[in-house]
Design a binder for these strands. Structure first.
Lengths: 116, 116
DNA sequence: TTCTTAATTAACCTAGTGGTTAAATATGAC
DNA sequence: GTCATATTTAACCACTAGGTTAATTAAGAA
C-alpha cells in the first residue's frame, strides 16, 4: 500500500464499516464490543478495522479494566478537508454548468410547448 | 470491494498517482500520454488508474483522433466534502484542546522559571 | 482458583490492487 | 497499404485487505 499519510487516511475512510465506527464515536467513547454491535462481522474483524483507524490516527484507545474504550480523533480529517477543498471551485463550476444546462433545457421545453 | 459510491470514491482517492492525475487535470484537459509523463509507470498502469477514476465519475474521456483527452469532473468530491464536513467540529475541538493544553503548558513553564 | 467476558493474536482463505510485458486496436501520416 | 503513435486489452504476478475460526491474554467476579 501507498504509505503517505493522506493516502492512508483516504484508504481508511474507504470502508463503510470504518466510517460507521467513526460515526458511532462521534457520539462519544465506546468499547470495542459496543462498536461491533451494529455489525454482523466477528470481533477480530472489528479489531482489525480499529487498528487501521488507529494507524492513521483517527481513533485512540484507552484502557479500563478489560475494556479498551475508543475515542475519535478527527484531526487527520483536516488534511482530507483541505485536499478536497482545493477542488471545490471545480464541482461548483460543474454544478453551475449543469444548472445552466437544465435552465436552458427548460427554456427550450417551454419554447417547444408554445410552438405546439 | 465495497461498492457504495462514497467508499469507491475514497478508495479512488487513496492512491497518490490518481490524486496527482486529478491535480494535473485541474489545469485542464490532457491526453493519457501527457498524464503519464510525470510517472515512471507503464502506460497500461495509467490506463487502469484512469478506469478507476472514470468508474467513480471523477474524470471523463473524450475522443480526438487517436487521443482520449481526459477531463476532470469534481462532482463526486462534493459528497466527500460533505462527509468530512460533518466532522469539522471535532477536529476544531481537538485543535482547541491542543491549543489549551499548550497554553497551559506554557503557563506552567513560566511558573517553573519563576521558581528557579 | 475457576469462570466469564473483553479483546487481541495467529493462521489461514479469497478476492482485489497495482504493477508488469506482450499483443491488439485505432487513427492519422506517407 | 504501410508505418508510427496513442491507447487499451490480455495474461500474469506479488502483495494487501477483509474476512474467518481457534487459541491466547487480561481482568473482574464467584
Amino acid at each position: 500500500m501507498t504509505s503517505d499519510a493522506l493516502s492512508l487516511t483516504f484508504a481508511a475512510l474507504a470502508d463503510p464499516t470504518r466510517r460507521a465506527i467513526l460515526g458511532r464515536l462521534a457520539g462519544g467513547e465506546a468499547s470495542v464490543k459496543e462498536l461491533s454491535r451494529p455489525f454482523k462481522i466477528s470481533a477480530p474483524a472489528i479489531t482489525k478495522h480499529l487498528k487501521v483507524l488507529q494507524r492513521v490516527g483517527l481513533i485512540s484507545q484507552g484502557r479500563n479494566a478489560q475494556w479498551r474504550p475508543c475515542r475519535l480523533d478527527a484531526r487527520p480529517l483536516r488534511d482530507v478537508s483541505k485536499w478536497v477543498g482545493d477542488y471545490r471551485r471545480f464541482w461548483e463550476e460543474s454544478f453551475d454548468r449543469l444548472d445552466a444546462y437544465l435552465t436552458e433545457l427548460q427554456r427550450k421545453e417551454k419554447h417547444h410547448e408554445r410552438k405546439k
